[in-house]
Design a protein around this nucleic acid. Sequence first.
DNA 1: GTGTCGGCCGTCTGCCGACAA
DNA 2: TTGTCGGCAGACGGCCGACAC
Lengths: 422, 422
Amino acid sequence: MKLSACLNQQSPEGGEKSCLNSELWHACAGPLVSLPSVGSHVVYFPQGHSEQVAVSTNKEVDAEMPNYQSLPAQLICQLHNVTMHADMETDEVYAQMTLQPLNAQEQKEISFHPADLGAASKQPTIYFCKTLTASDTSTHGGFSVPRRAAEKVFPPLDFSQQPPAQELVARDLHNNEWKFRHIFRGQPKRHLLTTGWSVFVSAKRLVAGDSVLFIWYNTFSRTLCKILESGRLTWFVYALIRNDKNQLLLGIRRANRPQTVMPSSVLSSDSMHHGLFAAAAHAAATYSRYTIFYNPRASPSEFVIPLAKYIKAVHHTRVSVGMRFRMLFETEESSVRRYMGTITGISDSDPARWLNSHWRSVKVGWDESTAGERQPRVSLWEIEPLTTFPMYPSPFPLRLKRPWPSGLPSYSGMKADEMGLN
Amino acid sequence: MKLSACLNQQSPEGGEKSCLNSELWHACAGPLVSLPSVGSHVVYFPQGHSEQVAVSTNKEVDAEMPNYQSLPAQLICQLHNVTMHADMETDEVYAQMTLQPLNAQEQKEISFHPADLGAASKQPTIYFCKTLTASDTSTHGGFSVPRRAAEKVFPPLDFSQQPPAQELVARDLHNNEWKFRHIFRGQPKRHLLTTGWSVFVSAKRLVAGDSVLFIWYNTFSRTLCKILESGRLTWFVYALIRNDKNQLLLGIRRANRPQTVMPSSVLSSDSMHHGLFAAAAHAAATYSRYTIFYNPRASPSEFVIPLAKYIKAVHHTRVSVGMRFRMLFETEESSVRRYMGTITGISDSDPARWLNSHWRSVKVGWDESTAGERQPRVSLWEIEPLTTFPMYPSPFPLRLKRPWPSGLPSYSGMKADEMGLN
DNA sequence: GTGTCGGCCGTCTGCCGACAA
DNA sequence: TTGTCGGCAGACGGCCGACAC
């Protein structure tokens, strides 16, 4: 593996190294992934970070790992920088974040803005995602484009030609160009990518079950999307605004194969766990910056959470055993659906190591029988309790000194001591 | 990348996971690489380990990395386990070592055995290594086997056939089978691998400049090698003992391309350095076992050294500025040659972080003009001073309390306090 | 609407000795 | 002794519509 392309979240267009498109990154990362904004305050969970390392190295943290006494279960930090990356060899997306723990004085001076809540990731509107079939990846033929997808995302064909065909140029996460012959033929008629497709499949080492996604993108797309969302759309409305063939992006998402990542031959998994704890502990002790990687498709849960989202979920939401809730999950087609469940317990997930951590403090049972796929423990900020009023007093120890002021959710300008942070 | 095959050094044959051949591993690692024996005492250098991580992540250790006060510049350890591995995707070889720092009492009780000196790696005798040419890796043809190589390593052909040909079966580091058609044809006659060769080249992603090596191996090979080394050999002597076609092994060595390894997307390089220091410091504080990876082709120098070799080089060899020395290097053809140089200085390479470390304490100048390829700093145990008697008193601070007893190199049974270890 | 297949053509793989370094 | 090439034959890549689900 080699150094990846990168993009600072704040400058999606300019800069000589800004070859990584933010919308494409988010499309590859999936609809549930959101990155906190640069400059905002966040909560970092060493426990969740450790979970990602455990999954990536395929090895649980050693039971004999010492407690890092100086490292609290959660660190309140300012997020100084976020860059999006993609592995040069696998196209795996990940983010690099520079965090700086706040000292006591800085924590007192925190003021919140609603934006800090961390809105759901903006998935590009003009895009499609298709899971590759055996025929798509076979050397025998090309790629069968779903009709609606082609009409929505690809530049319109000139139907006066027989057969209608054009050359598509799409750019991947590394800004590499891929050219495809797009043709509309067959009986019944269908959209196909022929010449160029097999080169792409073999270069990216795609297999049946992996997904490919195309985005139509330009700098006005956000504005245009809002306009388009406001009314009914026909394919020629899309076609009218898609006159620049060079604005096509494509990304891949590999199927969840068992053991996607590996234990690096560089450092033992134990040393990696030591590394993240020691780096965080050092940063916490000196209030200095440190760097972490977040791999959205490897990590079971986000472990850098907007502070406001955390405060709201932990200190201003009453939950109790027996309460019903919903939680978002990604579908195979890259959209979201809600699964329902019941809270069966509230307790620290690892009281020996991380006392009073809120990480995965909620034990849950899932309604559907395929529940084995979903985590038996979740964090408060991941779920939507179905009652907005407290049915039972929460048995979970809250450090909240004062109740949440009426008139939710306006807490802009609140001070930290009003929220029980210290 | 995925989990690799592994082999415990002590059980090259048995065990369900012992699919990695020790001789093949050493052949791929190169002639200069030796692994200390299991159970022996070694010196571990965090500084050298950090160097390997810096090379692997392509990023130097951060200047703001804190000093790990409790971590000395060298740790005396017992080596509890060594396993050899190969990366599943790249076939890159590496070793996993389990080290346990010795407490003060254990250090006093150390007794040495001559074997602890760490003999040079035993390269298999019946093997060959060839750097691939453009023709070898082209899809246009097969692999041209050097004549002597084929006669030495491959099973003998039946020359009554026209043309003489056979099927070779060779196993790689992961015990995968590769089949090749071996034929002796052309004008002039030569040995070629045809059918099966291109599959191997594309599966291993070999390019011109990479090397491939074949070993003829069986459990008696060490004994046989000694017999063979004692006299002159002709090809039919080899042929007589190579009657089992399934004993053929093959490995690869990739050319040194710039930026071979990459910054993992799992952990920042800073955290990796923290990790190795914290893991070692924790192990040193508690005298508990810890695990490290040694990648012989990534690391500029070995950082786990047999204790006896270290003692001999540091405490019982007089060196001084101006002294001439030789040092072994690997050639492109996988043999060794000596380069000569002059000692230009003796000092700590990083006095701020690692005071009184002997790691790369010798500044050197190299005789040949291509000297830029070689390290400007080496460690005492890497070089052979050309004078066996001290010409000048060493300016380097020796902690030796008593002089080395006369009658080198017999120090079996010596106690640590006689060698200035404490 | 789209996944897979048989048919068909063209390119490239891959085996051969020639030849030269 | 061995690296590269021209020649050649066959395999496979890859484009097409047919057909079924």
